[in-house]
């Protein structure tokens, strides 16, 4: 039985480990588009701050990977899936056959039509690759502009601030909320950030980024001009599933799965941030972002791919450390 897992993040690696634990003879191939050994994305901030070493990011060493008997293929991405043939096609036209397939490609930030032409001047803070580039540049960086939304955006603001950089945050909203509703965060997040020295510009958005003598010149829709050493921006964070186009796998924003994490196509499962699953709290399909969900979905998918019959139950919350304050986030409410 050949299990192919697309995606080497938390969900993919957890599924691979689960499959091997249930059947050590199973053939497991994990295909990841990043150039590195599978790593814990949620620790990138600590790595950026030098709180941990690069090796501490890894799920396992090469030795452990070999002991586990999982074949890892790094730096490769999938072009298309043909469920009727039970094959996937990789970017270099290699055809890989599978018996069971798991799609665990997560989500990723992206730029809308306005910012896309300025992509080469804009940094993401998403992957280890982004982080390594950022680490190289940081010593020369004093002023930063951050434009975006979500917990990862807040995370970036915090880390830049903690590293002593002057941070300007631009949001389309009236307040800086990052889409969060806090349970036990005392006080107002917007005010809290401003008190910490973060400049927040509300009801604004970036419309152009150009190189200038002083780094970069940023223009906003309200015709403000700002200068900065580095620009972080993203318009959205969405499931990374463009390669399923034409495969008949049902999707909305993410891949639709049942509680066994099965997709509409036989022997194809999906887990993690690329999945939309029925959520009892909101009574509809929703993407369950976050580490606890990815871990549990990876485990359940791996188990079901191995012939078990498990149902996924939504994990309650993620815990986020905001400049020393613990924040529980349940953004689906």
């Amino acid at each position: 039985m050949k299990h192919v897992i697309i995606g080497a993040g938390v969900a993919g690696i957890t599924a691979a480990r689960t499959i091997k634990e249930l059947n050590s003879n199973a053939e497991v191939v994990v295909i990841g588009d990043e150039l590195f050994l599978p790593y814990k994305r949620y620790l990138l901030t600590e790595f950026l701050c030098d709180s941990i070493q690069r090796d501490d990011l890894l799920f396992f060493s090469i030795k452990k990977l070999n002991e586990l008997g999982v074949k890892l293929r790094k730096g490769e991405y999938v072009k298309s899936i043909e469920p009727s043939e039970k094959v996937i096609k990789l970017h270099h036209n290699e055809v890989v056959h599978y018996d069971k397939l798991l799609i665990a490609t997560g989500g990723r930030p992206g730029l809308g039509l306005v910012l896309r032409p300025f992509k080469k001047h804009i940094h993401f803070y998403y992957s280890l690759y982004d982080t390594l580039i950022l680490k190289e540049k940081l010593p020369e960086v004093h002023k930063c502009i951050v434009f975006g939304d979500g917990v990862s955006c807040l995370d970036l603001i915090c880390v830049l601030h903690n590293l002593g950089k002057r941070v300007t945050y631009i949001t389309r909203g009236e307040r800086a909320t990052f889409g969060l509703e806090e349970d036990d965060f005392e006080g107002d997040l917007h005010e809290f950030l401003e008190e910490k020295g973060i400049e927040i510009i509300t009801e604004e958005q970036i419309v152009s980024v150009e190189e200038s003598d002083q780094g970069y010149k940023v223009e906003t829709i309200q015709q403000k001009t700002l200068t900065t050493d580095i620009v972080f921006a993203w318009d959205f964070y969405k499931p990374n599933i463009s390669f399923i186009e034409g495969s008949a796998i049902e999707k909305k924003l993410g891949i639709l799965v049942n509680t066994r994490l099965e997709t509409s196509e036989k022997d194809i499962y999906s887990a993690g941030d690329c999945v939309e699953i029925y959520h009892p709290s909101i009574k509809g399909y929703w993407i369950n972002f976050g580490l606890p969900n990815a871990l549990e979905q990876g485990r359940v998918a791996g188990s079901n791919m191995s012939g078990q019959n498990e149902e996924y139950k939504t994990q309650e919350a993620i815990v986020f450390n905001l400049m020393g304050t613990s924040l529980k986030a349940r953004w689906w409410r």
Binding site: L35, I62, K74, G75, E76, L90, N93, E94, V95, V96
Partner: peptide, 19 residues
Amino acid sequence: DVEEEDSLVSHITPEMQGH
């Protein structure tokens, strides 16, 4: 199309870095 056994990439081990 290239089958797995004929693909250089499929033989690259995790210790190496493919580009």
